[in-house]
């Protein structure tokens, strides 16, 4: 990542050594939402209208996963030409919600399993005239001793 790296979307995740998704927590019922929300709480049993920003857990369990063997259509911006397929994972966080993300570079579906642990990282999604644009991604957590199997 270059010095000019900026998130591809503002305010959805933090950067730095321990990046995290930024969600909203209703101050009335404590339900957590991602992406961030405002206005009225979407819990139908709650009349709350105030939210506080919170960082979501950086680790969760893989709900399911796949990949994109063909280049997705616009507004997807391919990072490379020719296109290089990438994997995708839906990860269930301790906060009780599932969040989609691309899988970290270098990992494919063979490295993933429903129920296995994944950790959030921030990597370059594409590059434009402002520099690298970054996004959150899910990186499989490989325990010590499993490395040899990879």
């Amino acid at each position: 990542m270059s010095q000019t790296a900026t998130p591809a979307i503002e305010g959805w995740f933090t950067t730095g050594p321990a990046p995290a998704l930024v969600g909203s927590r209703c101050t009335t019922c404590a339900t957590v939402f991602f992406p961030r929300t405002g206005g009225f709480c979407r819990n139908p049993a709650c009349s709350g209208e105030e939210f506080e920003g919170i960082e979501l857990s950086r680790r969760g369990r893989i709900w399911s996963y796949t990949d994109a063997q063909y280049q997705p259509p616009p507004p997807y911006i391919p990072a490379t030409d020719p296109y290089v397929p990438f994997a995708l994972a839906a990860v269930e966080l301790p906060e009780g919600l599932v969040v989609l993300g691309q899988v970290a570079g270098g990992y494919g579906v063979a490295d993933l399993e429903v129920g296995a642990e994944a950790e959030l990282v921030v990597e370059t999604l594409y590059t434009d005239d402002t520099g690298d644009r970054t996004i959150w991604r899910w990186k499989p957590v490989i325990e010590m001793g499993q490395e040899a199997d990879q």
Partner: peptide
């Protein structure tokens, strides 16, 4: 996880 969402609702509460 439903199209076209990027996340589900939270069931924690």
């Amino acid at each position: 996880m439903d199209m076209p969402n990027l996340s589900t609702d939270s069931s924690a509460v």
